[in-house]
């Protein structure tokens, strides 16, 4: 087992600022501290070669989890191990097999051209020169940044910098790579390039990758396993394919109404229930329904009966809708836990 968290918890101590003039002195003399729980009772095991997507709303604890497993900060309770060693006590040997990319924070040297940062990394990780040159060249070609290697990092665009970070992280061929929102703020093409690159590295070298992102497409196209965090707890941990199977037998129907049409009201709900349809979203002139694929045939005529419809689109149920439901309800899709594809 490469990564293992057992009952891992992490709390932070923060102090609350008191308002006003009196508070100003109160803050200085005696402070009110409170505990923030970022992770609670997390149990997680990741094997060699897995590609794990880690998602959750803002503040769910994704970054904290990555920091605890990679040994940047210790867990406050339970344990976190990497390569079978306590994450917070990694030796040089383990560190050589590990890399971290953070979307918001550069791991490279801000005022140096990327290539020079890489050379520094070459020394730090003792990479043989010829191997190093081959890897940089190849990676830069794949990520289309060969021209930018000589430029100072701070003069690169966000996407270019991100690609450099990724190249830097993979230079020493780590066994485990953590990527925290590596696609934040990137354009479609760059995002796709990076995804493809990660999938290839995972497949070719068997690198274990843990990726967080708020973009479900990132997750769908790269990961095989999905972990959903909510308020510091693991809400779901299982096979992404199974989850997809569950959503793929439903269809989402987006309906655009004529201004003269009647709008949605709760009295209509009972008419949908027999067909297993639910209303996902409603705006004054747009409604979004979710229906089992088998019932589309009877559901669509019903819609035309109820509303004056200007336009209508039927799509496969996007994963995002499900995830949103999970985030909002806080309920895991029960029958899907632990990687069992839906029966």
């Amino acid at each position: 087992m490469l990564i293992r968290m057992a009952d891992a918890g992490k709390t932070f101590r923060v102090w609350r600022r008191k308002e006003g003039f009196k508070g100003f002195f109160a803050n200085f003399v005696a402070r009110e501290w409170t505990q923030v729980t970022a992770l609670a009772n997390v149990n997680l095991e990741i094997r060699r070669g897995e590609f794990v997507g880690l998602i959750g709303a803002n503040g769910a604890g994704k970054t904290t989890l990555i920091k605890c497993v990679s040994g940047i900060t210790p867990v406050s309770s339970g344990s976190a191990t990497l390569f079978g060693v306590d994450s917070f006590a990694l030796g040089d040997g383990e560190k050589r097999r590990l890399a971290l990319v953070m979307g918001q924070r550069s791991q490279l040297w801000w005022d140096l051209p990327a290539i020079d940062s890489f050379r520094l990394l070459r020394e730090i990780y003792s990479i043989p020169r010829d191997v190093f040159e081959r890897r940089v060249e190849e990676a830069a070609k794949r990520l289309v940044v060969t021209e930018k290697l000589q430029r100072q990092l701070r003069q690169l665009s966000l996407g270019e910098r991100m690609k450099m970070e990724i190249i830097g992280a993979f230079l020493h061929e780590p066994d485990v790579v953590f990527l925290d929102e590596p696609t934040i703020g990137l354009d479609l093409v760059s995002r796709e390039t990076i995804r493809r690159y990660l999938v290839e590295l995972n497949r070719e070298r068997g690198a274990t990758i843990v990726l967080t992102s708020h973009d479900m497409e990132d997750i769908e196209e790269t990961c095989r396993r999905l972990v959903i965090l909510r308020q510091g707890r693991v809400l779901f941990d299982g096979d992404l394919v199974g989850l997809k199977a569950r959503v793929y037998d439903r269809r989402s129907i987006e309906v655009h109404l004529e201004p003269s049409s009647r709008t949605w009201d709760e009295s209509l709900a009972p008419r949908l229930a027999p067909l297993g349809a639910t209303l996902e979203r409603s705006a004054p002139l747009t409604l979004l329904f979710s229906v089992p694929a088998a019932n589309v045939q009877t559901f669509v005529p019903l819609l035309f009966e109820l509303f004056q419809i200007r336009d209508l689109a039927i799509e496969r149920h996007p994963l995002e809708l499900l995830i949103r439901q999970i985030f909002q309800s806080g309920q895991a899709p029960a029958q899907l836990s632990s990687g069992e594809p839906k029966a």
Binding site: I72, D92, A99, L100, M102, R105, Q107, W109, I124
Partner: peptide
Amino acid sequence: GVLDSLRLRPGSPIFVYFFQ
């Protein structure tokens, strides 16, 4: 809190940080 990479990388953190 920008010393994360110092934690992750092999080698003496004192040397790598102070002499960089």
